[in-house]
């Protein structure tokens, strides 16, 4: 199990398009992905959960990844949120 904290730096937050890119990127993995915001936990592979979580710019999220391919998932997530790729998400 891996835990990682990420602060959302995209101006619009995790809006619909960004959430869509996120879910598309992670659904192919077997690991369970949980996103935690303010002690509230949601399923990271459920786009509706992410959209309705309402993640704004500056929001601190904790990701918990658990499964056989967790390291790959971690690098995918980090890649998505890295500053270089910021335009993506």
């Amino acid at each position: 199990m891996i835990e990682v904290n990420i602060t959302i730096s995209n101006k619009m937050g995790l809006h619909i398009r960004a959430a869509s890119l996120f879910v598309q990127a992670v659904t192919k993995y077997k690991s369970i992905i949980k996103i935690i915001k303010n002690n509230f936990e949601i399923d990271g592979k459920s786009i509706i959960s992410i959209i309705l979580l309402g993640v704004e710019c500056g929001c601190k999220l904790k990701f918990i990844i658990d499964g056989p391919d967790e390291t790959e998932v971690l690098s995918t997530i980090k890649n998505l949120f890295s500053s270089k790729e910021n335009s993506k998400i």
Binding site: I16, R17, S20, S46, I48, S49
Partner: peptide
């Protein structure tokens, strides 16, 4: 067209 992709994901959402 990405918006349609998003709609597909909403349709596939397992929680709902």
């Amino acid at each position: 067209a990405q918006i349609i992709k998003t709609y597909s994901l909403i349709l596939k959402d397992h929680v709902i």
